[in-house]
Design a protein around this nucleic acid. Sequence first.
DNA 1: AAGAATTTGTTGTGCGGGTGGACAGAACGA
DNA 2: TCGTTCTGTCCACCCGCACAACAAATTCTT
Lengths: 410, 410
Amino acid sequence: MGAQQRRSGLGTNQEAVRRHNLGTLLRHVHGTGQMSRAELTSLMGLNRSTIAGLVAELESLGISERATPAGGARQGAGRPSAGVAIAADGPCVIAVDLGVDRAVVARVGLGGRVLQRAQAPVPVGGEAWQVGASVAALIREVVEDAPAASPLVGIGISVPGMVRRSDGLIRLAPNLEWHDVSFGGIVLAALGLDVPVSLANDADLGALAEHTRGVGVGVDDLIYVSGQVGVGAGVIMGGHRLEGAGGYAGEVGHLRFDPGGRPCHCGNRGCWETEVGAHAIAEAIHCPPDKVAQLDEVLDGFDSPSPELCRTGTAIGHGLASIVNMFNPRLVVLGGYFRSLHQLVGPDIQAGLSDRALPAPLESVRLTLPGLGSDSALLGAAEIALEPLFVDPVAALGAALVDVRARLAG
Amino acid sequence: MGAQQRRSGLGTNQEAVRRHNLGTLLRHVHGTGQMSRAELTSLMGLNRSTIAGLVAELESLGISERATPAGGARQGAGRPSAGVAIAADGPCVIAVDLGVDRAVVARVGLGGRVLQRAQAPVPVGGEAWQVGASVAALIREVVEDAPAASPLVGIGISVPGMVRRSDGLIRLAPNLEWHDVSFGGIVLAALGLDVPVSLANDADLGALAEHTRGVGVGVDDLIYVSGQVGVGAGVIMGGHRLEGAGGYAGEVGHLRFDPGGRPCHCGNRGCWETEVGAHAIAEAIHCPPDKVAQLDEVLDGFDSPSPELCRTGTAIGHGLASIVNMFNPRLVVLGGYFRSLHQLVGPDIQAGLSDRALPAPLESVRLTLPGLGSDSALLGAAEIALEPLFVDPVAALGAALVDVRARLAG
DNA sequence: AAGAATTTGTTGTGCGGGTGGACAGAACGA
DNA sequence: TCGTTCTGTCCACCCGCACAACAAATTCTT
């Protein structure tokens, strides 16, 4: 019975049961990287023997391996429970975090372990195929030392823009100046491979990663607000990603903020982004326009907030109030350059929020920094690429690519 | 494998499979009121024999009964499929739509059939126990002719205010002037019964009802924007209700709209509600303040829009643009007095929306009137009360109350 | 009008998968 | 050292769905 997926009105046959249980078990192990069989039985509410059978299948698939029980976790008498750990040569994915000025690529295994990483600057105003080639080069670099036994399940790409859910088309990435780019196809073509590629918005993936292994573990209603150059948000409600009809949910940057405000590139006036976006902040702190993409580093150079920045903090808080009223999250995670801003004007942000949010949603919400630092989007990209494994481990592994290094070399 | 519920990381055993399949089958029949076994097999992807077994169980529970196949639906050769219809004496619920000036109570069966209904005015500024007594009287009226065999599964109550998800406490109902009222308990006490009671916000229930049997059938991402006295929204995303951490999600009335605008009762300035709320509109059309609760009727009396109303329509559209940007719904349903307004200034609303929303979310969204008229919230209340039947029909029926009429009389 | 074709209901059998009990193994505590 | 406690393994068992064969009820074809 299900959990993760949202099937419409399908019935369940027993083969689906097996799939689901195997996937759920793997998801649990993935969440912590290592887990005892005893914990799994109580978490999943299944019989010891059933868990044993599932674990055996996972081992025979080469996904997990038997581990000695964690030494410190002993808590009483009884036979110690054998550990279930992610196999060293287990399946892995390629995660790509496409930023406005640099791309980070990593090979990531189950459990969210970054096995290898590489990065390179992205030329300003680069064509999609150029960026695709550069990303493909990074991918080659990153799979160089991959063990031949480790199958590649897929590629996940984080994009600073709006991505269509149905096919992963990049509809609009304003800061890359891309319209309707099929970046997944471009990367695959540059690699000469055919593996599943998933693309999603960076804020959405930040939310996903923070929910899975960051500050949002166990928090089923959270929002990740990301300041890159524009402002976006990733929303998780009831433990599920909020995607919307086309996949564009979370465009908080164009919330109406001040109808008399400055014109926004979207054509309106006084969007939230015109007050708290990177360009606005850069202007407020007299930062040169060519440094806007590195706004977080510039902000980290400040040791005390200027009055302008305090006003910006308040504006952030006021905008967050609208968001909190709309979504009633338990957690708001401030990513991107909002991380740096929070260090400087955290109290102003909080005060702006407290001042404008309704009492009921306000009482349960908490403002925090990302638990994964600047890797949120990257690890979120890994998560969507790994997702098929949790839906159906056998099928996902069947579709995976073995010995990627050789294939890329040849 | 699951669908409706969102269990955390539980495993599935076969008894859960049976529960789920039985519940899902019932949900399908509930959706249309009548359905052929052949349709059920293809919809649920299960074997003919399995469906036959499930249907037999449903019949033995007294929930469904065999029906002659619908005459017109024949489409080709082959033996006609026997129908599965909701039993006449099947389980039912009490639905309560608590408005700011009147309460509507109905006995509703599966399939959304309103079997009996009654309504009464609610005194302005009435205490919760007074309103509770009046609702209890309506409930007695409505179960008067209920067949003894028909078990009462529960009571669902639609509330014009913020309802805490965990326990159904009414945190704040501004137009009833209630704070922290346990209205469910009050009604049960007045009835001297003990049945499951569910409470939820009226806009949330409007969204639910429109999704189940209104204009939103088959649309998994929709928003029901309701103008009662304040403005609220119910959100369904990915086929699931958006509730938020406390259950307060969808408070769109207090979106920041114009920071230089009029003061709002929430303490801020220029909330959307101060522009498009009932009080603002009443003022714009010079409607006497004591008629605000019947604003829809007043508006229905207009046959052409005044310039003030056109401006209001534009403001509604502008606010909807923020909502559409945030949620990316496929459908926006205009409920409450927005229904009447849409008749008058529909083009202005649409123009305001088109003018301010981002292209990507705009291209897939559609603005409509409710398919259930003013009964959306009432039928939504019935839906949440019926919900346990779809999760576990056997258990829900076991907990249901038989021969309610006799119990209420005694 | 009668037989063929088609689709569905019914029945019995088989299989997959989770359950539960019995037993053995491994640590802890007295 | 021995009892306690908890876990892993193996077994028979039950439950629920799938599948195949047959019967029933229509429509289509000739």
